[in-house]
Structures are given as structure tokens and as C-alpha cells.
Write a protein that binds this DNA or RNA. Structure first.
Length: 271
DNA sequence: AAATGAACCTGTTTGC
DNA sequence: TGCAAACAGGTTCATT
């Protein structure tokens, strides 16, 4: 999926297209994706007020009492088409808008999911209740990361990818922020100085900010709401660069597996 | 309690 | 060229 910058890019693309629009019909071509779909029928006649985001969840806020919550999983995409357009391969849901446009959800791997939640109690829902701070908010601080890491033997990469620690840091941006901080992904979290954790806190914010500004990264199937690719891929220092020379020190980038996922790092720059 | 691995599913890339 | 294995951005659940 999209990591946080990609979801944010989708959100900024959809927001001006959808805010204020009334839903005329909604239908799905299967009963659910990762989880069964909620009963969408109550959406008909409601207006989308805003499109916001928490963690990697898109929040379509409605003028009634509910919010349509959507997670893109690994390969979820939204496209705004016209009502007459044919159903594309892997299209699972269509949300028709008054005026003839039609928002389509496609998801090849079907890891995405949707829910229709009461807006007032949304943040108490299990999807949100135990989430950590937004990485770009003031509440994500060095002190927070320091407290989390204290005494922990888990590798630092696993810790920063844990959504209860900080949300939105996926496999790509974990690798890139650890490179910029000069920290080896397998280093035990409890064995990193405060100064270096402060650096990591900064580089997480820096990498995500730059990636959002670039419109996210494009890997195989991520496209923005307008169908154009993001450009952050060109900025990768380590991700996907196994055996290539580090741009900084020239050593070959290495790849290891941590908790079943690939980690890329520079053995010269990261300790 | 904390850490690791498997599962969900399809498409693309890599290696023999 | 063809086929099989490995791998892919996330999250949750089960097992050490």
C-alpha cells in the first residue's frame, strides 16, 4: 500500500473533487474485501463534507452522523470516472455522485477494507483506539520515542513501523529515515542514544514531509487520484537498492529480512 | 510481555 | 521460451 505520504496524496487529490458532493448510489461487486462491507445503502442521499485522514485511513465525513472509513491495504486505488465508464478489472465498489460522476475503488490484492462508523465515537473504534501519534504532529517527539525504546530489545525498524508507536511509517520510509539518521535497522531500540533518537525523530518527519511534497512514491501500482505518479521514488537512498553503491560512501547497499520484510541499509553509513 | 511468523490475495519480477 | 519461486507498500492473529 500506500504508506502515509501516498494516502495523504490520495486525500488531497480527492478532497476538492468530493467535498460537498451528494452520493446518488453506491454498489459493490463482492460482499467484502479484507472484512465484509458494511451496509452502504444508508449512504444514498448523503453529502460528503470533507475527506480527511488518520494514520493510513481515509475518512469521508458525511453530513449525517457517520463517517465512511477506508483503508487501501496494499493495492487499493480510487479513480473518479463517469457513471457510464465500464467496470475495470479488480473494481470492487462504485460510489455514484449526483451529476454523473462515479468514484470507483479498485484493489487487486483485496487487502483493503471499509467501514461506516459513527463520527462521534470513531476514534474509540478498534481501528483507531490504540494508534500512536501522527508523525508530523507536535505530539510525535524525541521524548515519546525515547520512552518507547527504553529497555526494548526489538530492532528499531520494527519499533518505528509499529502503529501504536507512531503511525504511517511503512517499509519504505522506515528504511529511508533510518538511513538518514545513520542507524542500523537491526539495532536494538533500547541501545540507541537520546541524541540519535532525536535525529531519527527528525528524519522521520523530514522524509515523510518531503515524500508528501513530491506526491508520494510510485511502486508498481500506486497512482494518485488524478492518475499521475508521485516522484519520491527518485529520492530513495537505500530502499530497493540492494548491491548498488551508497550515494554517500560508495559501499554496497545490503538487504536483510526482519519480521518477514525486506530491510535495506548502508553498512558504511548505518551503525 | 515481547518478538517472530503466518495469513489474507493477486500480479510482477527473477532465476533456472 | 516456459515455468516456478520469490517478492511486493499493511494489518491482524497465532505461536514461541
Amino acid at each position: 500500500m500506500p504508506e502515509l505520504p501516498e494516502v495523504e496524496t490520495v486525500r488531497t487529490g480527492l478532497e476538492p473533487l468530493l467535498s460537498g458532493r451528494e452520493i446518488s448510489a453506491i454498489s459493490c461487486h463482492r460482499t467484502g474485501l479484507r472484512y465484509p462491507f458494511p451496509d452502504f445503502s444508508t449512504l444514498t442521499g448523503q453529502r460528503i463534507t470533507t475527506v480527511s485522514r488518520r494514520s493510513k485511513y481515509l475518512l469521508f465525513e458525511l453530513d449525517g452522523t457517520q463517517t465512511l472509513v477506508w483503508h487501501l491495504g496494499m493495492t487499493g486505488q480510487f479513480h473518479l470516472l463517469s457513471a457510464e465508464d465500464e467496470k475495470a478489472k479488480h473494481e470492487h465498489v462504485r460510489i455514484d455522485l449526483l451529476g454523473g460522476e462515479s468514484l470507483r475503488y479498485r484493489d487487486a490484492r483485496r487487502f483493503g477494507y471499509a467501514g461506516l462508523l459513527d463520527s462521534l465515537t470513531l476514534l474509540s473504534h478498534p481501528w483507531f483506539a490504540s494508534l500512536g501519534p501522527e508523525p508530523l504532529s507536535p505530539s510525535f517527539t524525541t521524548e515519546h520515542l525515547l520512552a518507547i525504546c527504553h529497555g526494548r530489545k526489538a530492532p528499531i525498524k520494527t519499533v518505528i513501523m509499529d502503529a501504536s508507536v507512531v503511525v504511517g511509517v511503512g517499509n519504505i520510509y522506515a528504511a529511508e529515515s533510518l538511513f538518514r539518521a545513520g542507524i542500523h535497522p537491526a539495532r536494538a531500540a533500547g541501545n540507541i542514544s537520546k541524541k540519535r533518537l532525536a535525529r531519527l525523530t527528525f528524519t522521520i518527519k523530514q522524509v515523510l514531509t518531503e515524500a508528501i511534497a513530491a506526491g508520494g512514491s510510485t511502486i508498481s501500482d500506486f497512482v494518485k487520484a488524478d492518475g499521475k505518479p508521485g516522484y519520491f521514488t527518485h529520492s530513495f537512498q537505500v530502499y530497493g537498492r540492494e548491491n548498488s553503491a551508497c550515494f554517500h560512501c560508495g559501499k554496497a547497499i545490503k538487504r536483510i529480512t526482519q519480521s518477514g520484510r525486506s530491510s535495506f541499509y548502508c553498512p558504511g553509513c548505518q551503525r
